[in-house]
Amino acid sequence: MTTVEKIDPQAAPQRERGATASLRRFARRHGWSYVFVVPSLITFTLFTLIPVLWSFVISFQRFSLARGGQWQDPLWENYIDAFTKQGGVFVVAIQNTLIYSFFTVIANILFGLVLASLIQPLSNRLKTFFRAAYYLPAVTSALIIGMTWRYIFNAQWGFANYLLRLAGMEPVRWLSDPDIALTSVTLSAVLTMPATAVVLFSAAMGSIPAEYYEAAELDGAGPMMRWWRITVPLIRSTTLYLVVLYTIASFEVFERVYAMVPSGVGNSTQTIVTQIYNNGFKDLDFGVASAQAFILFLMIAALAVVQFRALKSDVEY
């Protein structure tokens, strides 16, 4: 990396006196920089910063559209209600989200790693073909993918039960049996190929110098050994990035559930975000919904800290 010495374009030194003069000098020097940044800064402040701060305030309030916000009596009341409301559905929702995330993230990373490894030795044309095949569903909205899976899992005429019938097995009520519904939703996510992982893993593997593999080969290492000892360790930072990416995405799962089981199957398909949505926009209980949104935020922030730590130790290593 070359560092280029910055030449200040408007550094014409002029002697001006007083506050207005120095303000003018400041504007001449930096004016354009702020012109470039300010539009983004305004929308950022209006639509991200203020809403986040306000949402934090609301999470300690009883809020109604007509009367505005009033502080809760123990200030943290909403955070207690978040867990106890309706017999503690939110606890079930967190459990469901964690189960869903656990299997989805593991499957995504494994599929991504294996598929990227398998397309690595192929010709560029085939590589592009497979990458495109895996990526195509990712440009379609999660809602439509979810709807499609809903019909695949239809108990009467769905494709999944057709396969079971072919195999001589009993049909399954994939999405209406409360014991199975969450598994079905998770299965649909597991079977959706991890497009980003394939592309990123494949890029990371492509940047490993060929000499490493040649040296290992001379030492008599077989293909599996080389993969395990060279490829996997050298793409570790990509793996970590993807784990965090997919975990955040599955903590926030909503469209898929909304499309597959629109009204929910009892509590068995409630997730963190369906709870936020129900509390906020069906019950208009903004306080509890905000508290739950911040609990989700905390879970994600904790993950980001873990990622940061791991990357840091990676550098020091």
Binding site: F44, F47, T48, L49, I50, P51, V52, W54, S55, I58, F63, L65, I248, F251, E252, V273, I276, G280, F281, F286, A289, S290, A293, F294, L296, F297, I300, A301, A304
Partner: peptide, 15 residues
């Protein structure tokens, strides 16, 4: 703020 879930902001935005 990139990692702040939009679910935090939708409530004030709705109000």
């Amino acid at each position: 703020t990139l990692m702040i879930p939009i679910h935090v902001t939708v409530i004030p935005l709705f109000i």
